[in-house]
Write a protein that binds this DNA or RNA. Sequence first.
RNA 1: GCCGCCGUGGCUCAGUGGUAGAGCGCACCCUUGGUAAGGGUGAGGUCGAGAGUUCAAUUCUCUCCGGCGGCACCA
Length: 644
Amino acid sequence: MHNTNEIEVTFPDKSQRSYPSGITGLEIAQGISPGLAKKAMFVLVNDQQWDLTRAIEEDAKVEIITRDHKLALEIIRHDTAHILAEAVKELYPETQVTIGPAIENGFYYDFYREKPFTPEDFPIIEKRMAEIVDRDENLTRHVWSHDKAIDYFESIGETFKAELIRDLPGSEEISIYQQGDFIDLCRGPHLPSTKKVGKSFKLMKLAGAYWRGDSTKPQLQRIYGTAWRDDKELKNHLKCLEEAEKRDHRKLGQQMDLFHFQEEAPGSVFWHPRGWSLYLNFQKFIREKISKNGYSEINTPQLLDRKLWEKSGHWEKYHENMFVTQTEDERVFALKPMNCPCHVEMFKKGIKSYRDLPLRLAEFGCCHRYEPSGALHGLMRVRAMVQDDAHIFCTPEQIKSETARFCTLLFDVYKDLGFHDVKIKFADRPEKRAGSDATWDQAEQALKGAIDSLDLDYDLNEADGAFYGPKLEFYIRDAIGRSWQCGTLQLDFVLPERLGAKYIDQNGDQKIPVMLHRAILGSLERFIGVFLEHNAGHIPLWLSPLQVVVAPITKNLNNYAQIVVEKLRKSGIECDHDLSNEKINYKIREHSNKKIPYIFVLGPREEKNKQVSVRKLGQQSSETLDLDLAIDKLVDEIKTKGKI
RNA sequence: GCCGCCGUGGCUCAGUGGUAGAGCGCACCCUUGGUAAGGGUGAGGUCGAGAGUUCAAUUCUCUCCGGCGGCACCA
């Protein structure tokens, strides 16, 4: 065994070595190899992140983390945030620092300063940051008492930092990092010196942010940056951003001539012919799915008397988000923000028996919500939208089977649409809620039981349910890794009661039905936005508003083009011809930019042999096929939704 | 809603304290051309709205509207 001045270190490969107590991670690395010491960034000591220079005094599991490790990026970003703060303090000493964490792809730092930063400040700040890196300042860790830390930050006028420390448990020791003259509260760890951080960073954008994310608290200025191991990674990331920008559905919407917005209708879409056709294709697709699944489609009014909204609780809970109108007779109406009250009214029409349940009412109802102006964002967040909405009225016993049924439908729909990565979150009872604990127990169990019986994984989204019931949230992952909540299933015990919905059970007693609010796509507007970005505008043939453009090479082929178009249309294919006075190169470019799935090029050879030259979007080469065969292939692709 | 930035022909953008320019698109003409921009000519803008400063405002200031990036919000 070893004496008290020695400690036993266990490495990831399970090998063990003795070291004098108080040895640092850096020294251990040096002992292994100088190369390792050079690449080392920090150490994991018993799975905790430690500075390389921190003394290890007891037996421990030790792993040296090098620049290649995925955890290293986080440290680089965190350190870069500190370097940003140091640079800002040097350049603008009146600024107060607050917090600056590493985030996905980079970091940010929130500052408090009267004068706003502008993007013109970026080069100046970046230059100073580079200087700080060159200075090779050591980052040293100090441990201060709670009071000392508060006194220090108060004394230098850093009131936000002082407030942070004040909120930390008083018994806890406060770790402080110093680099040059800059001293900051930080949990760490950090790299040993600023030089090790490197200069593969870039300040990206400026934004407002509230102190502690609270809109009643002071507004801070947030500087976002990105930071990487080396310039190659940085460049790569900037390129990815460009790619994502190209996918922006607002840009695609314009390029593809799908929709536009204008000042007079903020947050409401003007759908162009092709965009609307796409929209209707989605609607048709969902309509077919739900009609096969036992839903009845209905339609209910847009504008309803204030009294209904008072009864439903929306007037109280949702008033700020509602568009309200008044007619000359002074009656107050509101545009519906949701369909549910109307669906309950529909349910109430006539006496319902338990035999009528479950009753599934679906509606593509246009809902208006007065969303905060700052929240509007293309199709993703609008003020007028249509959901693939439905409400299922059922008995408590039917919750489980209805949930299972819905999940099956939802996965089926997502699969058809090319979303294969779906995550589920289960949001349980929130603090503020209606209904008894017994009811909640029942509801949560029913939902949980249903997911479990379907053998689905889900995460808990604690206390995030609706006030009337627990909900399932369905997140789809898109082609560039982003996650979107689209589908939802919510249990509601409140609204049917408030609006007086009843059914007669087996014993002839009046009962209040349970209501399931559910949507798969969520809002069609938003889903189309997500879908466009997911596919980078390459809409699958079966959903594409315009499926084929027939492009003859010369005027002499116009007649044949006409024949081809007619044949395509007879087979149910959406197509158009391009008889414009342009060369074929131009036509190809034009329709490729518009993301038309197929271009049929016609020349004298094709005409002679009753063929077409098929060019598929995204492919450089083309294939000459007999016209009938080409049509069969497309029809087949449409029928199978592109899945052979 | 909050912070910062932006708002010029259909689109992308340049520009100026003395009422504007390019490319693409559009119209017409020439060209009839095999897989991502052939050539020429022409039309088209009260420079987001209102107020102020000024002899003079698209340009400077303010207010409003809209957009962008975040924050907050997302029942």
